[in-house]
Design a binder for these strands. Structure first.
Lengths: 136, 136
DNA sequence: ATGACGCATGAACGTATGTTCATGTGTATT
DNA sequence: AATACACATGAACATACGTTCATGCGTCAT
């Protein structure tokens, strides 16, 4: 059967032009992966607390363990994760190891995330979504 | 010198004062959890791509599926996650559903994360940047 | 109405993730 | 040197997560 495919392709439901435009806006795959991994590492309540605390002042592992009410080992593991993504740095002082935030972007990310979650807490913005949408 | 070492306990290696100061700096538990969940939802390469694409223009599910080279179902699931955290909103147009970013904080978070990961990557030479990488 | 299409949802599967327990490393004190 | 302490690491376990498959829901055209 000979159907004229050109007609179909022109109006193809997937808007190729739009897709291409969006594709060009994407960061290279390597960066996408790095960004996702960074966010994933931030995506744990314990680590969020660690970073909020370190935003104020440097702390050692045992301080953090006490603050978080978890074991030293668990704390150390979490710090290892944060270290691997260069989210925290550390300096040695005798037996103690003091951790602090690695750069100012970390704190910025935390603050921006707080702003985001605080937006939805009030009454739902009018027209944000169609009626009958599932709540959080 | 038989000075008893028991007075070490008073000073305890865990600096209580420092810990208390840090504890006061923490957001309430509810917010910590919300922030962590938001970051966790951002911590997936597919969802990062979706948000970068939506930062440019609204797209429907099938557009995104094509762009991401995954099934419509998988795309829909990811959008459901993003919706649950109010990271994206959507509007219905006939059969199609167009998604877009919910607020400007999302884009800010993406850009800030990009800045972060680009810091540690050795010397940022001209060769490291390619066309279409002007997102920051 | 009936079929086609875009999208949403539920269940199930494989894998990755966070925690714990036990042990190892390095440093300071005795 | 030997001990104690702060921290790091490895293995192992339970759970959570993302993907896929199959199905259901709404809307549009015939």
């Amino acid at each position: 059967m000979d159907r004229n495919v050109s007609d179909i392709c022109e109006v193809y439901y997937v808007d190729e032009e739009r897709v291409e435009k969006a594709r060009k806006a994407l960061s290279p795959e390597k960066e996408i992966l790095a960004v996702a991994e960074t966010f994933r590492n931030l995506g744990d309540p314990t680590r969020v607390k660690i970073l909020q605390a370190l935003a104020i002042q440097a702390l050692c592992v045992c301080d953090l363990a006490k603050l978080l009410a978890v074991s030293d080992s668990a704390t150390s593991h979490q710090l290892r994760v944060l270290r691997s993504q260069k989210l925290v740095r550390f300096r040695r002082e005798g037996k103690m190891v003091y951790y602090s935030l690695d750069d100012e972007h970390i704190d910025n990310l935390m603050r921006e995330a707080l702003r985001h979650i605080r937006e939805g807490e009030g009454p739902v913005r009018a027209g944000a979504m169609k009626a009958g949408e599932d709540r959080v």
